[in-house]
């Protein structure tokens, strides 16, 4: 464990807690893409399969439970909660996310570290995580300005993966033959997807206005 990875995990944790807090306190999910939340639930379900079989550390198990629990409860809130669901903007959140699930799955069948169920699902979860934010970014473009909590959520989500890239660089130089192209390329693509959002996010911080995304 190194500082970059710990910072990345805590940033990731903060992003889901910010989102849960927002939905739980103001009982609204305005501006949040259910599709992205469903994709994240799939990412965690397919990546944390080994939760019950291999024990790595208390930290690892605890974090996996928190991520699984929070992502599924966010999906439940938006789909089922009688008040929250009313604020879900389903005719704006129209990204056909099955069109990214299938290609990711096909890609995982082609490119993986080993052709076993666990490895293929693990690669699938990495590819899917890289593009899971797309419905949310599309929704932000459509609804133009977004409230601060959603902005913070997306920012923290992007920052976590950027910190992970620093972690991979650190591990590459400190651990012999630590080479994992699948993880590295997926993580890089994921972070690049956030790049333009980061640009507008910092712009809005500078001129202290609401976050205005260009049409």
């Amino acid at each position: 464990m190194n500082i970059f990875r710990l910072a990345g995990d805590l940033t990731h944790l903060a992003s889901v807690l910010v989102l849960l807090l927002k939905i739980h306190t103001i009982k609204s999910c305005a501006g949040i893409s259910l599709k992205t939340q469903e994709l994240y639930a799939i990412v965690f379900a397919t990546r944390y399969l080994d939760l019950f079989t291999t024990y790595i550390s208390l930290y690892n198990t605890l974090m996996k439970l928190i991520f699984l629990g929070s992502s599924f409860s966010i999906v439940w809130y938006i789909r089922k909660h009688k008040i929250v669901r009313r604020s879900y903007d389903k005719d704006q959140d129209t990204f056909r996310h099955y069109f990214i699930v299938l290609p990711c799955f096909v890609l995982a069948l082609i490119i993986h570290e080993k052709f076993t169920v666990r490895e293929v699902l693990w690669a699938f979860s990495l590819y899917l995580e890289a593009v899971a934010i797309l419905p949310q970014l599309v929704l932000l473009q459509r609804t133009r300005n977004i409230d601060n909590l959603t902005g913070q959520y997306v920012f923290l989500l992007g920052a976590y993966r950027a910190l992970y890239i620093l972690n991979w660089i650190y591990r590459y130089f400190t651990e012999p033959h630590f080479v994992h192209w699948i993880t590295w390329i997926s993580g890089l693509v994921q972070t690049l997807l956030y790049a333009d959002f980061f640009y507008y996010y910092f712009q809005s911080m500078k001129n202290n206005g609401k976050l205005q995304l260009p049409a």
Binding site: H12, T54, F67, Y164, F178, T183
Partner: peptide
């Protein structure tokens, strides 16, 4: 056992 170290990441 190949402790695939990348798998200990979240």
């Amino acid at each position: 056992v190949d402790t695939d170290s990348i798998k200990d990441e979240l």
